[in-house]
Nucleic acid binder design. Structure first.
Lengths: 115, 115
DNA sequence: CCTGATGTTCGATCAGCGTCGAACACGATG
DNA sequence: CATCGTGTTCGACGCTGATCGAACATCAGG
């Protein structure tokens, strides 16, 4: 549940994104797959739309790590939580990194169900 | 001890370097520091020359991970084992990645003792 | 040949992280 | 108001990885 008032969605500002956190976040196969899938998809994608090989709670954990490391931005829309890659921010901070991830991360197939 | 005949120094060929292994290798603070220190130093550096905050055996483990992931090349010289960044290989495989690591990894201060 | 320097290897330990199910929270829908 | 769909949170569990000390291997030098 996108808890509105309860737990605010926290994410680092652009200048506060640090590489170590990014590396830790992306060194996990599931998370790398999420990023690659999200990158090769137009528009924002809800958490549940990813076909991940883990339980819901685990999935939620991974999204949290990705958000807090600054890889993606999350916002609530009704009952769903949408994800958006922080392309501009990442490119500004670490030029070329995202492209490498995307290019290589496609090997990890993470289907996205529906639109 | 650089065991010559016993345990051959194994490392991936250029085309066999994969990003996931690199990310895993560099997501560890000590290893990230080693790479940064090695990068900002001219010439090859022996393992013991790094002033690391861990035991010898742990250090040896980290160097092994770095070598097997394809980040660095190792070779024996007398009783010492020298390390060299695989700059060309990494740049060919993942353009820009190493530069990002170096630039950001300097925050992790890892002194190099002596020449 | 003995000694010191340099690393590796081998267990063992310990903390952290990925994992899960169950319970909960919130919005949408009827 | 009741129900369903979507995520989060909370303990608990297990496994992997970082860590260490001790023992060993190799080379260099006296």
């Amino acid at each position: 549940m996108p808890s509105r008032n309860a737990n605010p969605i926290e994410q680092p500002t652009v200048e506060n994104i640090d590489l170590s956190s990014i590396l830790v976040a992306l060194s996990e196969p599931v998370r790398l797959g999420i990023v690659a899938a999200l990158a090769s998809h137009d528009g924002d994608v809800a958490c549940g739309t990813f076909d991940l090989p883990v339980a819901k709670s685990t999935s939620s954990h991974h999204f949290k790590v990705l958000r807090e490391s600054g890889v993606m931005h999350q916002y609530d829309e009704g009952t769903r939580r949408l994800n958006r890659l922080r392309r501009a921010d990442l490119d500004a901070r670490f030029p070329g990194l995202l492209d490498l991830i995307i290019a290589e991360g496609r090997q990890v197939v993470v289907p996205i169900i529906g639109p």
